[in-house]
């Protein structure tokens, strides 16, 4: 535990970031380093008191990302089994978000190059898609079915194996 905290506090400097809608946030340098983009900016001496502007990340997801990075930076190396479990629990709770926030996190984590968070959000999205019929997934994600009935039939035929073994969904196949 002590070692992990030391790692995070190697440099006590706080890094400022500014969201696309003008809100300011602060996080320890070790946390900011979890973002590839921020790390490069820091290395290039672009981190100043005015803060690093993040043109495509709004305040709401940025607040979450700062949380995520701060938590993970504090526990980056030499984890005990208990600490690893705690971090896993943190991740599981962290990613219990609504669809809007999930998309925001997907895009922002990808843009900022926060690998762990990117994986977490992608896995969460996949877990939500799994085990559902196309119709159920369309409903959940608000996807509009723009196929003609003929096209639908063709798609079913193309991957008959996938639609056959499963229970037939209510509408398609």
């Amino acid at each position: 535990m002590a070692a992990a905290t030391d790692d995070a506090g190697d440099s006590n400097e706080m890094i400022r970031v500014v969201s696309s809608d003008g809100e300011h946030f602060e996080m320890p340098e070790a946390a900011a380093n979890l973002s590839l983009v921020l790390r490069h900016m820091i290395e290039d001496d672009c981190a100043d008191a005015a803060g690093i502007p993040l043109a495509v990340v709004a305040a709401k997801p940025l607040a979450k990302i700062v949380d995520y990075c701060t938590k993970h930076a504090a526990k980056s190396s030499g984890l005990t089994i208990e600490e690893a479990e705690e971090l896993k629990r943190f991740d599981a709770e962290f990613i219990e978000v609504d669809t809007d926030m999930l998309y925001d996190l997907l895009v922002a984590a990808d843009f900022m190059g926060v690998e762990g968070l990117s994986k977490l959000a992608v896995q969460r999205t996949a877990d939500l898609i799994k085990g559902k019929t196309p119709e159920q997934n369309r409903e959940t994600f608000g996807i509009v079915n723009d196929f003609t009935p003929e096209e639908e039939e063709e798609i079913c035929k193309e991957n008959e194996w996938a639609f056959q073994i499963t229970k037939p969904p209510s509408r398609l196949c």
């Binding site: 898609i129 799994k130 085990g131 559902k132 019929t133 196309p134 997934n137 369309r138 996807i143 509009v144 079915n145 723009d146 196929f147 639908e152 798609i155 079913c156 193309e158 991957n159 194996w161 996938a162 639609f163 073994i165 499963t166 398609l172 196949c173």
Partner: peptide, 12 residues
């Protein structure tokens, strides 16, 4: 794999 193939039927 099956869930993956199902995504082909979501939309164009």
């Amino acid at each position: 794999a099956r869930d993956g193939a199902h995504t082909t039927a979501l939309s164009s």
